[in-house]
Design a binder for these strands. Structure first.
Length: 481
RNA sequence: AGCGGGGUGGAGCAGUAGUAGCUCGUCAGGCUCAUAACCUGAAGGUCGCGGGUGCAAAUCCCGCCCCCGCAACCA
């Protein structure tokens, strides 16, 4: 059976800070799915990258006295390192919104929306704090005043911007939702976006005056404006496929109106952008919608939102340096909910590491291979993941932790079996019976290793190699005190 | 105001009507192949509060309390 074409993408992190654990969660979840599909024989296109335009980046670059391009180059390199650090799919595609092709694609996308009559100039009202000399959004204000300068009145300023006719797409969006019961997962997020769209939509601004903020993609046919950052950023999901020139590749992976094929991963803060705004933009440009959007929760730290001022930020790189890539991947898959918010503390991480990985998987591998290397002369064939479809249901519903629970249940069974059969004793008193037991244990271990591959590719490889060599491997997960 | 999520033994979670389950931790016993790992058993919960429907409710309905997030042009 020929594999299917499979497309999935993460959101692109905005490069005004170092990679944090929340993005690690998103991309590891995506990577598990991508690896699983690949192992099942599908033709996979897996996209991530960096979102590099906009006023925040522009200001930060100026603050650091750097050219914005140089500033984003440095950050893009940091995010690119995640591929090695997190053990990501080798053919992962990494797009940057400053890539020349992306700029061309974004302009083409704009033109198509404009031709559809969905882009028009309107007056955009901004709230401006004279003290900060900055525009403010409502959420930055307290009682309509700037919290930093509560004595000053907020000024209202007006400028002419391009707007996207979001309101026009209320009905089409609701129809899309009605026709596609699995469009957004989990269902409570789907309900949330249905309610939001059902309540009515306002057109939104999609450009900024170049004289105020030049760091972005020029609006086609108007030298005075640049695109507002996320209008251009969203387009990466199709520009990464070579759209608009490479029509065959685009249809192969993004799909068609009749058969949409793209899976998107995003955090709950991105629900509106991905499930409503981006879908409206696609409709406007005459492109197929996304097939499905998975919305994950946030990782909190000690019950609170992570923030630099609280000093509770979890740095994935630090964890990887101490515990290794697969330990982090395991924790994200097993102990972090794919849908709800989850708390992450180093205490819990270490606990899970010691009990599940050191005492569980690592120890089981050591005890079985120690015996098999002494008493067995043949080793079992390593099975193919395609022939072991027991985790399929968990991966297709994104219940990663259930997949882990299932595999750890199998490990616990083997630990119990060794004790109950007293394999370590039988192997000395009754060679034939002992060998038979060991052979079974090794076969079971090989299956577990293969099933682990999408989640913990490096560990999976170490175990299968140890089985083939019939040699006890180096300590996979040394206990941490 | 509104919207969404949550409140289950010490900790983290599962459980959408029919004897309350898992992991970690704690305590007791066992084993020795293994990373002082592994196995068995035990203690520990009036399932946030109050009311209702049902033969039966953590699970459905109503009211209330508490925690977290969102509240659109901020990715």
């Amino acid at each position: 059976m020929a594999g299917k074409n499979f497309y999935l993408t993460t959101t692109l992190p905005y490069v005004n800070a170092d990679p944090h654990i929340g993005f690690a969660l998103e991309i590891v979840q995506a990577d598990i799915v991508a690896r699983y599909r690949r192992l099942m024989g599908d033709d996979v296109f897996f996209n991530t990258g960096t979102d590099e335009h906009g006023v925040k980046i522009y200001r930060k670059a100026l603050d650091e006295d750097k050219d914005p391009q140089i500033y984003v180059n440095e950050y893009a390199a940091k995010f690119r390192r995640l591929k090695q650090l997190l053990g990501l799919y080798p053919d992962l595609y990494f797009i940057r919104t400053t890539d020349p092709h992306h700029r061309v694609a974004a302009q083409e996308f704009w033109k198509r929306c404009a031709e559809a009559g969905d882009i028009e100039k309107k007056i955009y009202k901004t709230k401006y704090c004279i003290g900060c000399e900055l525009e403010k959004t409502d959420s930055e204000l307290i009682d309509s005043r700037c919290p930093i300068h509560p004595n000053l009145e907020i000024e209202f300023r007006e400028e002419e911007n391009y707007f996207f006719k979001f309101s026009k797409y209320q009905k089409p969006l609701l129809e899309l939702y009605a026709n596609r019961p699995d469009f957004v997962i989990p269902d409570f997020r789907f309900n949330e976006i249905k309610k939001f769209v059902g309540a009515g939509l306002e057109d939104f601004s999609i450009s900024r005056l170049k004289e105020k903020m030049p760091w972005g993609i020029p609006v086609p046919g108007d030298e005075d404006h640049i695109m507002f950052v996320w209008f251009d950023a969203l387009i990466n999901y199709v520009s990464t496929l070579g759209w608009p020139e490479d029509r065959p590749k685009f249809e192969q992976f993004w799909g068609t109106v009749e058969n949409p094929n793209a899976l998107q991963m995003a955090g709950k803060d991105n629900l509106r952008q991905q499930a409503a705004m981006w879908q409206a933009m696609l409709m406007s440009a005459g492109l197929p919608p996304t097939k499905q959007i998975l919305i994950h929760g946030f990782i909190t730290s000690g019950g609170q939102k992570m923030s630099k001022s609280l000093g509770n930020v979890i740095d994935p790189v630090v964890i990887i340096e101490e515990y290794g890539t697969d330990a982090l991947r395991y924790f994200l898959a097993r102990h972090v909910s794919p849908f709800e918010d989850s708390d992450f503390t180093m205490e819990r991480f270490k606990e899970a590491y010691n009990s599940d990985l050191a005492n569980g998987l690592g120890n089981l591998v050591a005890r079985i291979l120690q015996m098999s290397s002494r008493y067995l002369t043949t080793t079992p064939k390593i099975p193919d993941l395609k022939d072991l479809n027991e985790i399929q249901k968990f991966v297709t519903t994104f219940e990663f932790s259930q997949a882990m629970v299932h595999l750890w249940f199998r490990m616990k069974y083997l630990d119990g079996l060794i004790q109950e059969q007293r394999t370590f004793e039988v192997v000395k008193t009754n060679r034939i019976a002992g060998k038979k037991q060991l052979k079974y244990l090794l076969e079971q271990l090989a299956e577990i290793a293969v099933l682990l591959e999408p989640f913990m590719p490096d560990t999976s490889k170490k175990i299968t190699e140890a089985i083939i060599a019939n040699k006890k491997p180096e300590n996979l997960f040394p206990r941490k005190e």
